[in-house]
Design a protein around this nucleic acid. Sequence first.
DNA 1: GAGTGGTCTAGACCACTGT
DNA 2: CAGTGGTCTAGACCACTCC
Lengths: 262, 262
Amino acid sequence: MAKAYEKIANDLREQIRAGQYGPGDRLPSESDLIESTGRSGPTVQQAIRVLEAEGLVERRHGIGTFVRTRRTPVLRDNSRHQWEKRRAHASKEERLETGATEHDTGLEVNDLVFHASYREVEATEDIGEAMGVDEGTPLVERTYRTRYSAERYPFSLVTSYLIRSLVASNPDLLDETNEPWPGGTMNQLDTVGIEIDRVEEHVTARPPTPEEAEELGLPPGTAVIVLRKKQYDTEDRVVEMSHVTLPGDRTELLFTTHLERW
Amino acid sequence: MAKAYEKIANDLREQIRAGQYGPGDRLPSESDLIESTGRSGPTVQQAIRVLEAEGLVERRHGIGTFVRTRRTPVLRDNSRHQWEKRRAHASKEERLETGATEHDTGLEVNDLVFHASYREVEATEDIGEAMGVDEGTPLVERTYRTRYSAERYPFSLVTSYLIRSLVASNPDLLDETNEPWPGGTMNQLDTVGIEIDRVEEHVTARPPTPEEAEELGLPPGTAVIVLRKKQYDTEDRVVEMSHVTLPGDRTELLFTTHLERW
DNA sequence: GAGTGGTCTAGACCACTGT
DNA sequence: CAGTGGTCTAGACCACTCC
């Protein structure tokens, strides 16, 4: 029992892997495949859909089906946290120059477009548990979108939560016209006497929701990396938590763990 | 222009999100949907396929279509590296007791089944570049599969590369009957005078290949996390590199970054 | 055997792209 | 306009599961 669409998909996959069709090449058209395989339209289509779901090919309406090319990855390095902390105590001029994303990507501020919005919310059960506060605790929620100015879609979707009572002593932090915070979150937290001691990042992966696919401009056959970041202060409290969605086909996370010497 | 299958998928997705169908619940059968929507079989099927690809539902042949339940995640913590290094200098008895996976999962050795195989290979261009050696350099390749003894499929696919010349002075390391290495890789590297200084882990995500889906027992609508680990010794050489494939629906990576105090 | 999902067909028509 | 992929139908038959 060889399923027809599976056989067609396997044959094409093999040819792609063997290099008979390289990245960017056009595959035979559906009508070609209908003829060469002797199968019906829907069957051939389903075969191509399988390859599309694997991220192997891309269908372009009215043009053809093409072997996918890998997008250039955006690197996100966990040394960014130490870098950001150091910057928080640097001079004001230095702080305004670059942000953590520029540090990662090596780009200029002008190459990037930020969009941020601000809201006050109450902790849900889920968030409260993760941050170690009761459900209903007032929080400050900030939502970020960052993209290259030359591109259409952002390369990250970020929602960040702060405990309102911890930051309320600096009114600037409750003023949404200040977005994005000059000098970064760690610098602003310093103004209310909070020092970050460690950062925990939880990483999982899954297919995107339709909303995420839409907002990140993800083609079918792509996964997202979901990163939940928690920043602990020197008193072991969770001071900030972020939920970050990253396109899997163009994001590479780098974590360096330094070990004690013998 | 409302695509019929999209509309059906959207309606069902909305109902699932609203909790009208909870995790584990059965959705209406295809024939029900054909009747209630007035659409043909293939159209209804395509709608369900969309939800399946999103990881939202699971189709069971001859039984029905069900809302997916989340699998219990396996946590993989980067403190495992420091833990493993410390263990490498512990007593022999301690070393034999547990491995890094047990450390992560809190399980006993008997709850886990390891399978390892050994091969000598030459560095490909790709691997050579990552490890900082010339193409063709002799390597030791070890392949691991780890699973819970109660389960059918492994929860990680690991391929590890060592530079042969660096480990050749200990014949035990070239003996494949020794798998898995007692005391762990860091302990064995210690026997040839190598100390690991830091670990770099590169993380990306993508849909699984058919082979990975098969070997990990992944249902459609799942992503994999791809982790490339590089271990640097105190002389800044890449001593070991691993390629790890993890099921995205049940793996959670945790990375803790400790920051210098002000 | 009844009910479920899985595969497939032959053909129609629509929508998008490039010439 | 020709060529491409996108959607849909009506109905057939198969395969699996449970009773």
